[in-house]
């Protein structure tokens, strides 16, 4: 079995986001970037499945600017065998990314595609589902447990009500939750080895997909600051206000 894992380069989750004064987006210059956290879980799971002898190859793919390949390099350092970097600049909507990934799937013919459930920058939560629609493959989103059985996967999904278990036939898409596993650290010798692993570079225009944006981002702004309300004199007044004024209890 061959597993393709999609990874995205995003602003590190520890960095406090700063909105640009001109409202065109957020500041990214000299800001620490990292792999989207649940994408790390996706890589980890793929590598674990390979280590368990149930997969033969793990391919990491990213779509984005030149430096996005750092995320592929990191995936190679924790066990991916091969990398693909689709070079594309500017804003890419999930629809465009899923069309690009569809082309990569056509080319690489993986049995499974893994990725994080959501990117922590645009918070869209779309790409995996869109890719499975385009491929007409089954999808298992928000996976917190994956059990590989022959040509099927049993996946436990984190849903609002609790947990849901589904069984999907391969080929399939899985989007990963942070609870799926604990990603390993890249060791120094593996980082050195990763430098020698191949990363195939594809310029997005070679793929012949329409990636033109369908959404126009009119403005990015800071969320409004919450204003202080009132101070109440005592507990009785507080409960009365919550009951009759705010109507929340």
């Amino acid at each position: 079995m061959k597993i393709l894992v999609a990874v995205k380069r995003v602003i590190d989750y520890n960095v406090q986001i700063r909105v640009k004064e001109d409202g065109t987006g957020v500041v990214t210059d000299n800001v620490k970037m990292s792999t989207n956290p649940p994408d790390d879980n996706a890589i980890e799971e793929a590598v674990k499945i390979k280590e368990a002898g149930k997969a033969t190859e793990v391919v990491a793919v990213t779509v984005g600017e030149e430096k996005a390949q750092e995320t592929v390099r990191k995936a190679l350092a924790v066990g991916a065998d091969k990398g693909i970097h689709v070079q594309a600049d500017g804003i890419l909507e999930p629809l465009a990314v899923s069309k690009i990934l569809q082309k990569i799937v056509d080319k690489e013919k993986p049995d499974l595609v893994f990725m994080g459930k959501q990117a922590i920058d645009d918070d869209c939560n779309q790409t995996g589902q869109m890719l499975s629609a385009l491929l007409n493959w089954p999808q298992a989103t928000f996976a917190s447990k994956i059990n590989v059985k022959d040509n099927k996967l049993e996946v436990t999904r984190e849903i609002d009500e609790g947990l849901e278990t589904i069984e999907i036939n391969v080929p399939a898409i899985v989007t990963c939750d942070l609870r799926l596993n604990e990603p390993r650290y890249a060791s120094l010798p593996n980082i050195m080895k990763a430098k020698k692993k191949p990363i195939e570079k594809i310029v997005v225009s070679e793929l012949g997909v329409d990636i033109s944006p369908r959404l126009e981002q009119l403005k990015v702004e800071e969320p409004p600051k919450r204003k202080a309300g009132i101070k109440v004199a005592n507990v009785a007044e507080l409960v009365q206000k919550l009951k009759n004024e705010a109507k929340v209890i």
């Binding site: 604990e182 990603p183 390993r184 650290y185 060791s187 120094l188 010798p189």
Partner: peptide
């Protein structure tokens, strides 16, 4: 020696333990 990674707060090795290496 580089820092050991994946040690818990009580000093035990976690599943993700990755020993430091000698440079």
């Amino acid at each position: 020696v580089t820092q050991d990674m994946g040690i818990d707060k009580d000093g035990n090795k976690k599943d993700s333990f990755e020993p430091g290496i000698e440079l």
